[in-house]
């Protein structure tokens, strides 16, 4: 690991001042991703600003929204009684990820900004456009079973590995930022970029910009929501496919409201807006669910080893929606 200076920040303003607008400074949450990447020589910041003591607050508001402090631990968010009641898919997504130990360390912001688990990204003997722009991508012709079928480019097909982020995408979360240029808020859907020609630029954050909180806006349908993760072993593995879904069916048997997002298949947490458009107002039947899944996966592109994810994603969408809808059996 390269040497670095370490400083602990007491609040957001101090963190930004300590980072001093340096491109080679990094914020440190629980360290579960960054420390690993530094040890592997993939990341080499010269300054680490510890932001794990920033706001841990999980604030339930009367309007039905919840505000998560950026330093709140993954376990604390998953266990929060109001999150469990208002946004069960978020609890289910968090506890589907990593292990008890890692969830006790990981923070909300760190989880959002964790980097891909593409093996070639981790292997500095391999070619990787995300690590070294223009170097090439060894995943394209290599072992790409875990890679993306949606949102890839000629430069990069790495998936975003987070489970929690799939729920945040479905819930229209809002990310509150603070930086050298002041404060702003952006929709969660705009936080991560598609790789395009620059897979090394992963988010919309500017130099020195800090995530201070994440807001979950009120959403009645989210009380009836869940998260389904499909993986190679039943625990402690990254997703092959995962689905965050909220579904409200009216007395007329039609879909009154729906939110759907996919994990394990996209180069960023994947909001399934095309599927939602098919579902909204349609009869809540297996046939409708299948049609919505077909439409969402229509642009999917399989590589040599991951083509199975296309059908797997469709079936998991149908199954997950049906599980929220007692009348429909699959």
């Amino acid at each position: 690991m390269n040497p670095f200076d370490y400083a602990r920040a007491g609040d957001a303003a101090e963190a930004i001042r300590l980072a001093g607008g340096r491109a080679d400074a990094k914020y440190l949450g629980g360290g579960t991703n960054l420390v690993d990447l530094m040890r592997e020589g993939i990341e080499h910041p010269t300054h680490l600003i510890d932001v794990s003591r920033l706001s841990h607050e999980i604030a339930a508001r009367d309007d039905g929204s919840v505000l998560l402090g950026a330093a709140a631990k993954n376990t604390a968010v998953a266990a929060d009684p109001v999150v469990r009641e208002r946004f069960p898919m978020l609890t289910r997504a968090i506890v589907a990820g990593a292990s008890g130990q890692i969830r006790n360390m990981a923070t909300v912001a760190g989880n959002m900004l964790q980097r891909t688990r593409c093996l070639y990204f981790y292997d500095d003997a391999a070619r990787c456009n995300k690590r070294t722009p223009g170097a090439g991508c060894d995943a394209m012709e290599g072992f790409n079973r875990f890679h993306a079928i949606l949102g890839g480019s000629d430069a990069c097909v790495a998936t975003h590995p987070s489970d929690m982020c799939v729920a945040l995408a479905a819930l229209d979360a809002v990310v509150h930022l603070q930086g050298p240029q002041g404060a702003r808020s952006i929709p969660f859907a705009e936080l991560h970029r598609l790789p395009g020609g620059r897979p090394d630029v992963e988010t919309e954050l500017g130099t020195g910009e800090l995530i201070v909180a994440v807001e979950l806006p009120p959403l009645a349908a989210a009380r009836h929501s869940t998260y389904r993760k499909v993986r190679d072993r039943s625990s402690y593995a990254f997703a092959l496919v995962s689905i965050a879904a909220a579904l409200e069916v009216g007395a007329d048997g039609k879909v009154a409201d729906v939110r759907l997002a996919l994990g394990g298949v996209g180069t960023k947490p994947w909001r399934a807006l095309a599927a939602e458009a098919v579902l909204r107002g349609a009869a809540a039947t297996e046939e409708t669910f299948r049609k919505a899944a077909e439409v969402e996966l229509q642009p999917a592109v399989g590589l040599s080893d991951n083509g199975f994810k296309i059908e797997l994603a469709k079936r998991t969408i149908v199954h997950t929606l049906a599980s929220l809808c007692p009348g429909v059996r699959t």
Binding site: G30, G31, T32, D50, T75, G100
Partner: peptide, 20 residues
């Protein structure tokens, strides 16, 4: 795995300075 203020964590991913 060790316990920090009663909670289990992986000490290999923890920078010691962070737990002062």
């Amino acid at each position: 795995t060790v316990l920090v203020d009663g909670e289990r964590i992986n000490s290999c991913l923890a920078l010691a300075v962070q737990y002062e």
